[in-house]
Amino acid sequence: MLPLSLAEPMVPQSIAKITGKDEVRRHLAELGLVLGEEVKVVSTLGGNVILQVKDSRIALDRELANRIMVRG
């Protein structure tokens, strides 16, 4: 398991765990980021991440990306 901010780009990852405050987790869930979901990192910028989730692109900052753990 490793944080999304360290995951290899362009490789499908499965979300294992999302730590942290509830509000943010709920918002992520609404966008499709739930446990078991397959995502792909499109691009990173100093730790900030652009994520491919179910056909959409979500941009997250580094702290948030650190809180999303994926199976390596």
Partner: peptide
């Protein structure tokens, strides 16, 4: 606040 934003194509 954490930055979360959907990027439209």
């Amino acid at each position: 606040a954490p930055f979360v934003m959907e990027l439209p194509p």
